[in-house]
């Protein structure tokens, strides 16, 4: 049983390592967040699952599953709030980004999402040749 626990822990820490490499190597805050949120959640979930396997008792398993569910619920919410705040804060997008769907759709003072872009907003031209307009 201890070998199985160690193997699941190793898988979890491998995903944590992927999150660590992603947060250092990704070029953009939003890309960085997409790696850390997913890989970090999966890693923490696997490691808590490993403790549930190791202790093999009802109360520990309940606690571990509750913590996994809590992490899975709260991580997307926190990531979305940070991404929204960073977009208002003016975090730079990666220079290879070909489309920013939110450009001009947020009211600058009230932070309310609007369907129509503001009248004085300039939509930047897309210069990439390999981008095809769909439809």
């Amino acid at each position: 049983m201890e070998l199985l626990t160690a193997l699941i822990m190793l898988a979890g820490s491998f995903f944590m390592l992927m999150a660590g490499i992603g947060i250092l190597r990704m070029p953009d805050l939003f890309l960085r967040m997409s790696t850390t949120a997913k890989a970090g959640t999966l890693g923490a979930g696997l490691m808590l699952l490993a403790t549930a396997v190791y202790f093999d008792s009802f109360s520990i398993t309940t606690r571990a599953i509750a913590t996994i569910v809590f992490i899975m619920i709260t991580t997307p919410v926190a990531t979305h709030m940070i991404a929204r705040a960073a977009y208002f804060d003016g975090s730079a997008l990666w220079e290879g980004t070909i489309q920013d769907d939110l450009h001009g759709h947020y009211h600058t003072t009230t932070h309310i999402l609007d369907n129509q872009p503001a009248a004085d907003t300039e939509i930047p031209e897309i210069e990439s040749d390999d981008f095809q307009e769909s439809g």
Binding site: G12, S13, M16, A19, G20, I23, L29, R32, M33, T36, G40, T41, G43, A44, M47, L48, A78, I82, A85, A86, D89, S91
Partner: peptide, 19 residues
């Protein structure tokens, strides 16, 4: 480079401490 990057790094560090 900015504050949100540091907040995301702190979030990952907390997850690592959980591990």
């Amino acid at each position: 480079p900015r504050l949100p990057d540091r907040v995301v790094a702190l979030d990952l560090i907390t997850i690592l401490i959980i591990g």
